[in-house]
Simulated scan of single mutants.
Amino acid sequence: MGKVKVAGFALSLDGFGAGPEQSLEDPLGKGGRSLHEWAFATRTFREMFGEQGGEEGVDERFARQSMAGFGAFILGRNMFGPVRGDWPDDQWKGWWGDNPPYHAPTFILTHHLRAAIEMEGGTVFHFVTDGIEAALERARQAAGALDVKIGGGAETVRQYLRAGLIDEMHLAIAPVLLGRGEPLFAGLDLPALGYRVAESVAGERATHVVITR
């Protein structure tokens, strides 16, 4: 059985994993795009969207690790899209178009039932209504010997941290201040939960910190 990981999770210096006021125009919230500048120029990120070239270096190493070795993903509903409440129809299929970057079973946490959606490239979105542990059990079964990635957003990561279910977390800390948004660590005592800093490396556009339990 693989590990449960958070990888490539971008965080502001003041501890926000996304900006406020998520919308179709601002899927990462106001100012949220600035958290991910470290990844946009990397070879891995460009390959994900069918583009050539891209930078090598520390940021590229962590970007590649953040997408490698995963057999299943778990996302909060806000990571899947801006729709709230009951699903009005089956039109919304995620932010990423017909070929999302996951290429594996991906489990969406929600309170509202919806049939699974099979996308191009091997991504299948499954909608889980019975909580984080049920989603993780299904993701582990789907992943087999590979790792499970908790893809976010911040509140989803917080829930899994609070439950002590995350084995390893890689944060890409961007040199920006958001002031408000989705806090990652508010109310969490990570040392009391058994977490410690295992690695800290300065990259070209972010500082990469690995936390383990």
Score class of each variant (00 low, 15 high):
Q65N: 10
E60K: 04
G53P: 01
R140N: 09
E118K: 15
E137N: 09
V148E: 12
E60Q: 14
I132G: 12
R84W: 08
T129H: 12
G54D: 00
F70V: 06
D130I: 05
Q141D: 08
E118Q: 14
D59H: 00
Q141T: 13
A142S: 11
T110C: 14
R61W: 01
Q52E: 09
W92A: 02
M79S: 14
G81M: 03
A143Y: 06
P88L: 03
P88H: 05
D147A: 06
G131W: 06
F80N: 07
T123L: 11
F125N: 10
T106L: 09
G81E: 10
H126D: 07
A134E: 10
H111R: 15
K149P: 02
E60L: 02
N78E: 08
E55V: 02
E118H: 13
I108T: 12
F73S: 06
A135E: 06
P82W: 09
F62K: 07
H111N: 15
G151K: 04
R77C: 07
H111D: 12
D86R: 11
P101F: 04
Q65T: 04
D89K: 09
I117H: 15
A104K: 04
G131N: 02
G57K: 02
L136G: 12
D90S: 07
A145N: 11
D86S: 12
I132N: 14
A72N: 06
R84I: 08
R114H: 09
G53W: 00
P88F: 05
D90I: 01
W92E: 06
P88Y: 02
M79C: 06
E51Y: 02
I108D: 14
R84P: 00
Y102G: 01
I108G: 11
R77K: 11
